[in-house]
Design a protein around this nucleic acid. Structure first.
Lengths: 138, 138
DNA sequence: ATCTGTGCAAATAGTTTGCATCCTC
DNA sequence: GAGGATGCAAACTATTTGCACAGAT
């Protein structure tokens, strides 16, 4: 089952109803390559109020169907969560592109930090900034 | 030499002048334990306009005397940079406290990711969220 | 029929800008 | 004395809230 269907189902289970705004936002996030900001989502969808976009994102985040990604700008990105697809982001400062990566070594290091600090870790964000391969060899 | 003096000196060298707002902001950042938001700084300083706080932070950041820390909320934190003190942050979701940590393993893992992705890394942020030792054993 | 979701518009919060004035150099 | 620094107020951007109404169950 794809993410959109899954998300819609979970929203139903949580007692939410399905209106136009919710359908369009879920559909868009389900087909997105990477994180989208609330405003990008709003721009790409006609006849849906901006407030509804934010409210839908809020519900999706509460159910952990999407997650916020802070890439350091003034607005936050949102992307769908696949339990089996934990990853972080590389941000190219030249072209603004976002690419996901995973690293077991990095996850291990993070777990070790939490343990030695006595923190019960719930989540973590890692954002690497630099120049991507395409922009680097100009 | 302490950070405040150093920062003030570098601002001078960069051709900036020293007014009340700049003095107070630099002084506060120099004595801060960890990151402060622009609004916290503004609140703690009387008779200094908010705009001047932002402008001072902007200049300090450009000279790499302070750095932005995105802890995931709606506003960003700023803290002084000591070249010899690279660290990241643990955020307690219960009490909101911020504690710094360092991990060589983590830095290594990050460097490895950048290399294998063909990214020339310029900077990176790591934020771990969870429950701190104090809040955990309630 | 009921009660949630939606859209609009207004309200907020954080940050930036315009401009007259102050003050450093 | 000149030009940058500052403070105030207004502008802006992202996000949230109030409210009437449409629409899902």
């Amino acid at each position: 089952m794809n993410w959109s269907t899954h998300a819609s189902q979970r929203l139903d289970e949580a007692g939410h109803r399905s209106g136009r705004a919710r359908r369009r936002v879920v559909e868009l996030l389900g087909s997105a390559d990477c994180a989208l900001t609330a405003l990008e989502i709003d721009r790409r969808i006609d006849s849906v109020g901006r407030a509804s976009v934010y409210r839908t994102l809020e519900r999706l985040e509460q159910l952990r169907l999407i997650q916020r990604v802070d890439i350091g700008g003034d607005s936050a990105g949102y992307e769908r969560v696949d339990a089996s697809d934990h990853h972080h982001h590389l941000v190219c400062q030249a072209c603004g592109c976002l690419s996901p990566f995973t690293s077991e070594k990095l996850e291990d290091a993070i777990a070790a930090v939490g343990q030695s600090a006595g923190f019960a870790l719930a989540s973590h964000d890692v954002v690497l900034r630099g120049t991507c391969a395409d922009c680097g060899d100009a």
